[in-house]
């Protein structure tokens, strides 16, 4: 179950969401949007998607495949996979600390 976040309320970087989507299989733009919405609840807009796709492509973390009837699928590169793994590791770390700190506080000892 997911709460539907619009982009203004999101916490996840679109790059991480896109890389996560492409880590499963190559996808074209609209398929990435629907996949991301499904697994994260983030409704990404085309402008954000293509802003991030262009950056990821320039960084060499994804690569475009041949166009199929006006749609171009993208696939994740080896470098992209390793960057994603690092990002997820650091997010796990943040999640661990964050969860610890948001536990109901004990009465402060004087």
């Amino acid at each position: 179950m997911h709460t539907k976040f619009d982009e203004s309320g999101r916490f996840a970087d679109p790059s991480v969401l896109i890389l996560t989507s492409l880590a499963e299989s190559p996808k074209h733009g609209y398929a990435i949007m629907t996949d991301v919405a499904e697994f994260s609840g983030v409704a990404m807009e085309p402008g954000t998607l293509y802003g991030a796709l262009a950056r990821l492509e320039r960084q060499g973390w994804i690569t475009p495949m041949a166009t199929e009837v006006r749609r171009r699928p993208y696939q994740i590169t080896a470098a992209g996979r390793s960057v994603l793994a690092q990002q997820l590791q650091s997010m796990r770390e943040i999640a661990r600390v964050g969860q610890a700190r948001t536990r109901p506080a004990r009465p402060a000892s004087a």
Partner: peptide, 16 residues
């Protein structure tokens, strides 16, 4: 060309 194709399928709103 690609983003136009995505817009064809997307539910376009003011936010878009």
């Amino acid at each position: 060309e690609e983003i136009l194709e995505v817009l064809d399928q997307h539910q376009v709103s003011v936010r878009t």
